[in-house]
């Protein structure tokens, strides 16, 4: 099958179109559903930052299987700039957070916007420098990997605490930030599983069969970790049974729709990957790993709906369309990565 080849300038033009479309969808139509755009940026912030973090972690521990996927995953780094633009588009919507009516020292609109812009920008820059070092395999790779991971953890924690948890202010869960950055890594790994299947030729001279097996093993491990963290969080809230804590859960599981979504993401993020990936045979097949990866990404998306939906209403059609647009952008960047990645790797090398 012939793939459409786009130049880097065309890719940026594509992003401009996607951004304008999303802005029109958010602000151009009826203003009843205010959570859809937030849902999109929360979900894609995790997946995109997580995909780069997967490369950073594997480079740091010198895992060799990433050789087959390094370029594909790093080709997502320009989308982190796009994420920053999406956040800028979201800023007029900041009034949806309940705390804006009674701003405090930490939760006030100005500080919220400044800290989030700074962290998203820092993530873009660190990802760029890391990607450049990793592509050149130079000595600074590990240093940039550590810097990126620090910013990744801070940024995802802020996504959890600022963008999602504060929707239900004053509800708190101290594990929420760690849960989000682990989930972002899980999502990044799932993205790796899909990208490997989409073009199963390795970038370097590397045995092709090794990658799906290693991705499958890690997905299995992450499903257990995810299950453990989910349980650790849920158990304490359920056991404590304090009105100010339990309200977050009871509001959701008392609605038939959100209860069903709750069961769905539990199955998609834990039971299905755990049961399928436990099989040695399944882990060796790129198709199965990609299918499970798709299930995991769907699970994470449903989980985001579960968190955001009851606080802000969502438009299902817009959410679906925005996801398709973002996924198209991801595939466009991955499939047309050669030009901008070689420019990035060779810029200072000459």
């Amino acid at each position: 099958m012939e793939t459409i080849r786009l130049r880097t300038s065309h890719l940026w033009f594509l992003l401009v179109i996607v951004a304008i479309t999303m802005a029109i969808m958010e602000y151009g139509g009826p203003q009843e559903e205010k959570g859809t755009f937030l849902l999109t940026i929360v979900f894609w912030a995790g997946i995109l930052q997580g995909a780069i973090a997967v490369v950073a972690v594997t480079d740091l521990i010198e895992a060799r299987w990433i050789d087959a996927l390094r370029e594909k995953l790093l080709s997502l780094y320009p989308l982190l700039y796009f994420l920053l633009i999406l956040f800028l588009i979201f800023i007029p919507r900041a009034g949806v957070f309940p705390w804006t009516a009674h701003p405090g020292a930490w939760l006030n609109e100005t500080f919220f916007i400044i800290r989030n812009i700074l962290l998203l920008l820092a993530a873009c820059l660190a990802a760029r420098f890391f990607a450049r070092a990793a592509l050149r395999r130079d000595s600074g790779t590990k240093r940039w990997a550590v810097i990126y991971l620090f910013i990744f953890v801070a940024s995802q924690s802020l996504v959890a605490f600022d963008w999602v948890m504060s929707l239900e202010y004053p509800w708190i869960s101290t594990l929420f930030g760690a849960f989000f950055f682990v989930e972002a890594l899980y999502g990044g790994l799932a993205m790796a599983g899909i990208l490997f299947f989409s073009e199963p030729r390795p970038d370097a001279s590397f045995p092709v069969k090794a990658a799906p097996r290693d991705i499958g093993l890690l997905l299995f491990g992450f499903s257990v970790l995810w299950g453990g963290l989910f349980f650790a969080q849920f158990l304490l809230i359920w056991y404590g049974h304090l009105p100010e804590e339990i309200s977050f859960i009871s509001e959701r599981i008392n609605s038939p729709l959100y209860r069903a979504l709750g069961y769905a993401f539990l199955a998609f993020n834990f039971f299905i990957p755990f049961l399928v990936m436990i099989s040695r045979k399944a882990k060796g097949q790129a198709g199965v790993v990609a299918a499970v990866s798709g299930v995991i990404l769907t699970g994470i998306f449903i989980e985001r709906i579960f968190y955001i939906g009851p606080a802000l209403s969502l438009n299902e059609g817009a959410a679906f369309f925005q996801t398709v647009l973002m996924f198209t952008a991801v595939l466009a960047f991955v499939n047309n990565r050669n030009e901008f990645l070689s420019r990035l790797a060779g810029k200072d090398a000459a």
């Binding site: 101290t174 594990l175 970790l225 650790a232 304490l236 056991y239 404590g240 304090l242």
Partner: peptide
Amino acid sequence: VASVHSIVSWDFAVSIVPGWHTTIFAP
């Protein structure tokens, strides 16, 4: 490895004592 110390942490965290009852305790 994870379960044992998670459970040890819950010795404290399942109570409602200030400084103990917090979801991050297990990890």
